[in-house]
Amino acid sequence: MLNYILRRVAYAIPISLGVTIFCFALVYLAPGDPLTRLLPDDATAETIALIKAAYGFDKPIPIQYLNWLGRALTGDLGQSIQTNRAVADEVLIALGNTIIISTAAVILAFTLAFVMGTVAAYYNGGVADRVATSVSVLGVSIPNYWFGIVLIIIFAVNLRWLPATGMGPGGSEGFSIWEWSSVKFAILPVLTMAMVPIGIIMRSTRSAVSEVLSQDFVQTLRAKGMGEAAVLRHAVRNALPGVLAVMGLQFGYLMGGSILIETIFTWPGTGSLLNQAILNRDIPVLQGTILVLALIFVMTNLAVDILQTAVDPRIKRG
């Protein structure tokens, strides 16, 4: 098992390097001279010279990459063209805000989906099962940003129960998960965000639980007079690790895929940061944010894999 973990970690390294190469290449994907992509329009000759030297645009591309990688490793992701602030700082603040809603969304999705999935598996083929199945198909078919708009229309425009957008008066600094005045801003984004993982987690719960329930020994247990509640508890305990792994992966997806939802709700997380960067063609911010999000995604997958192996060493993997 230790071997597997080591190999898995060793395997994540080239992937991460590949991710950095991809992010580095983004600057070259952008049309025009890469230099102009990195500079504000009103940059002085001095700044231009400075940036030029710092980025080493006169050097061959591999050297440029290594320089860039070196700076990125020390936490220097360049400067925003728009705000002139360090990209790393902007990403860090935004990251915190994204973590708030994606964590909440994943917990919400997991709670709902696990219960629904278990019920669906237990009443295999019954009404509950069909409802659950439909919900999960809807979950993956629905444009979730549109779902957000619908929620806004219902809860903010018509009912006026919840605020439509933003993070509250205090912004990032003033936000507290313990105060209703803050939390109410997060409710709609979290609901919207939870929609996709609900479907996916429910599906894996359903199949995991019904697999356990269909095994012979469950029939034996029943025949021996074990109560239905105990049977179900047994099934749930067996299904849980696998479903938790799915949940972990979904967390990674939500973190990286928050752009649409954050844009709808103008939630100041990494997604909004990306959207701003795209609108302003602020390539350093785009590059830095994507790098951080992708690395987080790689790490989440790695952690999920390792945890799963630790919990259930029977799972043998290549």
Partner: peptide, 24 residues
């Protein structure tokens, strides 16, 4: 397959946004 794995390191929407965002 290793090259493919690198692209797997991105949630799909992020990858699409990254490429489209950079290319315009």
């Amino acid at each position: 397959m290793r090259i493919m794995d690198v692209f797997y390191a991105f949630p799909s929407i992020l990858l699409a946004v990254a490429i489209s965002g950079a290319m315009g």
